[in-house]
Design a protein around this nucleic acid. Structure first.
Lengths: 228, 228
DNA sequence: ATTACTATAGTGCGAGTAA
DNA sequence: TTTACTCGCACTATAGTAA
C-alpha cells in the first residue's frame, strides 16, 4: 500500500466506557498490567474487541502503553483524564440540579383547616425544633396545575423532614413531612401529610403571615424553590 | 410472521449516553418536548438514529413518552435515573481515589542541604502560615524507586500548596510547593522545588525530628499518604 | 414541522488463528 | 499464556420517504 493507514478515530460512547473501566481498575497514574481478555470481561466484550478498543484509545492518545514480555502495561494520559473529568462534571450537573425543584402554583383560600392542624402543640414543637422557626398559625394554599403536578409526585416520593404524628384531645394527628423552600426570599416550608388521598393543593407555612408580608392575594401565581 | 417481534435490547454505552443527554436537557421529573432531530444533533447522530435510540430506551423502560400533536414529550423513569446514578457513582469513585496517592520510599541520609534551605525565614514564615506548623529545621529524605517514580511525576504535575520564592543574603531562593501527608500518623509535608532537574528523592518536613520520634534509620521502607 | 419505516451502506464484534 | 490480524456476520447509521 502506498499510503500509511492513518485511521482517524472519532470519540464514541464505547471509548469513554472503556476509559472509565481503566480508571476504575486504577490505571490512572501508573502503568498497570491489563490484559485484553480481562478488559473484555469487564466490558462484556471478547478479547479481540477489547484489544481493538485499546488500540483505538492509543490512537486517540487517551492512554499510553508499554509492552512487557508477556503483558501490556497501560495508563491513562492527561488527555484521557480530561475526557473522564468532563463526563464526571456532566453527571455532577445532572445530580446537582436534582437537589431542588421549582413548583409554580396559584394562591387560593383554604378552608381554615390547615390553621387548626398546624396550631397543635404536637406539631408546633416539632416545627420549631426541626425547621428552626415557629410558624405563624395558618397556611398558604397553592393550587398546582399541569406539568407541575408531577413535581408534587416527586415530593411524595422524597423523604423530606419528618414530623411525627401524635394523639391529642382524643384525636389522632398523622405524620407529615416538610421541605424547606422560599417564596420571594422569605423562608418557608411545604407540608405534606404522609397518608393522604390525591390533592393538587400545596400547604405552606412560614414564620410570617405571608399574605400581608408579601402583599399576596388570591389568584396570584407563586413560584417556590423546594429543597429536596 | 407467527411470532411477535419481542426485541430484547441490552443496555449499551450509547443508551447511557443518550439518557445522560436527556437528563442534561432536564427531562428528569417532567415530560419535556424533545424532537428526535434535536436529540440527534446533541448526540452527533442523524434524526433517524436518534428516533431509534428513543424507541430503544422506551423498550428498556428507561424513559416514558407522550405523543403530542406535533412533538413527543419525554421523561426519564425511576429505572432510568437508577442507571444514571450508578454511572455517576462510578465517576465519583474514580475521582475520589485521585485525592490522595500512596508513595513508598527508602529512608536515606541527605547532604544537609535541605536543612539549610528550609531554615530560611523566608520559607519558615510561609510554612507556618500555609501548612499550620513550624517545621523542625531538617528534612527527611526518601529515595523513590520503580513504579512509585511515576507518582513523583504526578506531584510535579499537581498544583499543591505554593510557597513563594524570595531573596536573602544576596541569594535567590526559588518557589517550592508542598503537599500535606503523614508518616505513621504524624503530620508532615512533602516539599518539591518548582524548577528542578530530575530527582528520585522526596524531601519531607515535619514539626518533629522524625528520625527520633518514629525511631527511623537509613534503609527503612516508608509509606506516605499524600493529599493532592 | 414532526416520527419512524425500509433499504442500503458502514461499523463493530468475535471466531479462527498467527506470532 | 499473551496481542492482534483477517474475515464473515450482525448490528448500527443514514438516506429516502411516508404519514
Amino acid at each position: 500500500m502506498l499510503f500509511p493507514p492513518i485511521t482517524l478515530v472519532k470519540l464514541k460512547p464505547g471509548h469513554i466506557e472503556t476509559l472509565k473501566h481503566l480508571a476504575l481498575k486504577g490505571n490512572i497514574y501508573e502503568y498497570n498490567p491489563l490484559s485484553s481478555s480481562e478488559l473484555g470481561k469487564r466490558l462484556g466484550l471478547s478479547q479481540q474487541s477489547a484489544s481493538k478498543k485499546i488500540l483505538e484509545l492509543l490512537n486517540l492518545e487517551l492512554i499510553k502503553r508499554k509492552m512487557g514480555a508477556r503483558r501490556q502495561l497501560v495508563k491513562i494520559t492527561a488527555k484521557g483524564m480530561e475526557v473522564l473529568r468532563k463526563e464526571f462534571s456532566q453527571y455532577q450537573k445532572i445530580f446537582d440540579s436534582m437537589e431542588h425543584i421549582i413548583i409554580r402554583g396559584t394562591l387560593i383560600s383554604g378552608l381554615g383547616e390547615g390553621q387548626y392542624y398546624i396550631s397543635q402543640d404536637g406539631y408546633m414543637d416539632q416545627f420549631q425544633q426541626k425547621l428552626w422557626f415557629k410558624p405563624y398559625p395558618g397556611t398558604l394554599n397553592l393550587r398546582i396545575e399541569g406539568n407541575d403536578l408531577s413535581k408534587l409526585q416527586i415530593l411524595k416520593d422524597t423523604e423530606g423532614i419528618s414530623i411525627e404524628g401524635f394523639q391529642s384531645e382524643g384525636r389522632t394527628f398523622g405524620r407529615v413531612k416538610c421541605f424547606l423552600t422560599d417564596i420571594q426570599n422569605v423562608e418557608c416550608a411545604v407540608i405534606i401529610p404522609l397518608r393522604t388521598h390525591y390533592t393538587d393543593v400545596l400547604e405552606i407555612i412560614s414564620r410570617h403571615y405571608l399574605r400581608d408580608k408579601l402583599k399576596l392575594k388570591d389568584g396570584d401565581i407563586i413560584e417556590i424553590v423546594v429543597s429536596l
